[in-house]
């Protein structure tokens, strides 16, 4: 019987006014997390979404007890790291970014190691089956692929039947198939064990597919919070039109698109144009006519549904991928 299933009352995580400032002698202090408020409910898959350097990992590592907060309230499963560290550690599971386990141990032995650290714990067979590594049970860690290592990392995080699972960029660098199989493991943990998941990612698709709610984080601040559907709906535009032509941004800024109804928002940069629209079939003819009149020679024109990526662009004016801090 899973302990996670009985759960407890109250939220899985509560952060209030969380701040983390890194001070290095001789350098100006760096504010990694700048006043974050967050409540993660039990049983949800919660995503922290943002570019590299946004403060996602710092936030998660504070929740995991690896880092101390500079300021603010941190409650994990209703407990406090100051007084209940060992209790919290017994009830959470963690997969960190770029950890390398013992190179010369097999999958089964590593599962046994982590199972040995928890009481009660899952059996080795159960852990291996959870992440479908049966065929690799006797393979040493050094010989596993990136996807297999990530699955094993999640298995070790599940060793103690945690109520709360932290996954820091669990699918970074994985091929789409490995990514989807890891999503299945995460969903199964939530659906079958009733566990809570907090994960970080910079893949918008991952957040949209997997998470019940996401917080979009940029420069250590929350810039949006809600279900992926809510965030997208919040833009008021269901579709995006993207166009490319030489010097397009300058032409658009010069007024080429003035007077066309149904364009809610536009971002132009170099050769690229990004429009949020309610209905492409209504707007497109007007746009094409305007381009033709202005002599714009289009190289590409695409339309698609609005994604979380667009939410990020809308909120920050930047693409997610090039939004990393120096």
């Amino acid at each position: 019987m899973s302990r996670a299933a009985h759960g407890g009352r109250g939220p899985a995580i509560r952060l209030a006014g969380l701040r983390k400032v890194y001070t290095t002698r001789g350098r100006p202090p760096v504010v990694a997390v700048d006043g974050l408020d967050l409540t993660v409910e039990r049983g949800e898959i919660f995503g922290l979404l943002g570019p590299n350097g946004a403060g996602k990992t710092t936030t998660v590592e504070i929740c995991e007890g690896l880092l101390d907060a500079t300021e603010g309230v941190v409650e994990v499963l209703g407990m406090d790291w100051g007084g209940d560290a060992e209790q919290i550690r017994a009830r959470i599971g963690v997969s960190l970014q770029d950890t390398r386990l013992f190179e010369k141990q097999t999958v089964a032995e590593l599962c046994a190691l982590f199972a040995g650290l928890y009481e009660p714990s899952r059996s080795v067979e159960e852990l291996i089956a959870l992440v479908q590594l049966e065929e690799k049970a006797d393979t040493r860690y050094a010989h596993l692929s990136g996807g297999q290592r990530q699955r094993l990392a999640v298995a070790t995080a599940l060793a103690g039947r945690p109520e709360l699972l932290f996954l820091d960029e669990p699918t970074t660098g994985l091929d789409p198939q490995s990514r989807r199989s890891l999503w299945d493991v995460i969903r199964a943990y939530r659906d079958e064990d009733g566990g809570t998941v907090v994960l970080t990612t910079h893949y918008m698709e991952e957040a949209a597919q997997l998470c019940d709610r996401v917080m979009v984080v940029d420069h250590g601040r929350s810039i949006a919070l809600g279900s992926p559907a809510e965030l997208i709906a919040g833009l008021g535009a269901a579709h995006v039109v993207e166009a490319r032509a030489p010097g397009l941004a300058a032409r658009v800024d010069g007024g080429v698109l003035e007077g066309i109804e149904g364009i809610l928002e536009r971002h132009a940069n170099g050769d690229r144009l990004h429009l949020s629209v309610t209905a492409p079939h209504v707007v497109l003819p007007g746009i094409l006519r305007a381009f033709e009149r202005a002599g714009v020679e289009l190289e590409a024109l695409t339309t698609r549904h609005t994604s979380l990526e667009d939410v990020f662009v809308h909120l920050t004016g930047r693409q997610l991928r090039d939004g990393g801090e120096s």
Partner: peptide, 14 residues
């Protein structure tokens, strides 16, 4: 350097 110590530090192992 492999961050294995941190990984072990977040388990209930003292």
């Amino acid at each position: 350097s492999n961050k294995l110590l941190r990984r072990l530090a977040v388990t209930p192992m003292r």
